[in-house]
């Protein structure tokens, strides 16, 4: 029974994706119509500066946001796992987890209103654009990194850090020589997660972005409103292959 449902679920998850991958090679101008084998949509993609520009911008934002998210989320997870009971811990924990569930439109709108208010009060950030999208994505990514890091630290327990303290290591030394190396895989996984979240976001980028900063998902979203394109199928196949490669390497390296 469970295996049948698993197979059914996989068919459901994969059907649209697999069809995109197949029809990426179709010569027809209509997506999902077979018109003979062709590489033309990959060539079209290679010759689409607007999409390339958006992709580069998105990759840059995703890398920056993921890095910031690891720094902030690592600190959040560490505080939650290692600081025991402190004043305001309940509020701290609730705020750290909130971005995981808050509807995107609410997060997007509230961050935009914050940036507008901040600019009025302090002159920073100047307008909306790359920086504001990056901060919005980092705020979301940090919540995910915090969960991953907190779970890892809880799983490790405090004993190794206790042992290091017993051997004369100061708290900062413990963090550097014991804690950080042990949670490094979680930080890397958290970075990847935050990177993917940023690359997949339409709503936050729409609210907090400006006219000069159109990310790839925002661009694709405006195109999809007009209907799918064969170029999108080609792009989907490329992304799928990259993800499969990265995922396989990650799984193989884990052993």
């Amino acid at each position: 029974m469970t295996r049948a449902v698993l197979a059914l679920g996989l068919v459901f998850l994969w059907a649209p994706v697999a069809l995109m991958a197949v029809f990426a090679f179709s010569d027809a101008r209509q997506p999902f119509v077979w018109g003979g084998f062709s590489w033309r949509w990959f060539a079209a993609l290679a010759d689409n500066p607007r999409m390339q520009e958006a992709a580069l911008l998105s990759l840059g934002i995703a890398a920056g946001a993921a890095t910031l998210a690891v720094l902030a989320g690592g600190a959040l997870g560490w505080v939650l796992a290692r600081h025991g009971a402190f004043r305001g811990r309940m509020v701290f924990g609730a705020l750290a987890a909130a971005p995981l569930v808050l509807p995107e439109v609410v997060t997007g709108l509230s961050l935009l209103l914050l940036f507008v208010a901040l600019e009025r009060a302090t002159g920073w950030p100047e307008g909306r654009g790359v920086l504001t999208i990056l901060l919005a994505h980092a705020s979301l990514g940090a919540a995910y990194v915090a969960v991953v890091v907190q779970a890892r630290l809880a799983g490790l327990g405090r004993m190794l850090e206790d042992a290091a303290a017993d051997l004369g290591a100061a708290p900062a030394t413990i963090l550097r020589t014991i804690t950080l190396p042990l949670i490094a895989p979680s930080l890397l996984a958290g970075w990847g997660l935050a990177f993917m979240l940023s690359l997949d976001d339409v709503v936050l980028a729409s609210f907090t972005g400006g006219p000069g900063a159109t990310t790839l998902p925002v661009l694709l979203f405006s195109q999809m409103r007009m209907g799918p394109t064969p170029e999108a199928n080609a792009l989907a196949l490329i992304l799928l292959l990259i993800a499969a490669l990265v995922g396989a390497v990650a799984l193989l390296l884990r052993r």
Partner: peptide, 22 residues
Amino acid sequence: VGVCVLPFAIGFVLRMGAWIGL
């Protein structure tokens, strides 16, 4: 688990586009 999650790597906008096309 990886096979279950992989379709999500292409981004949900493209996946929604595929559903439109289907």
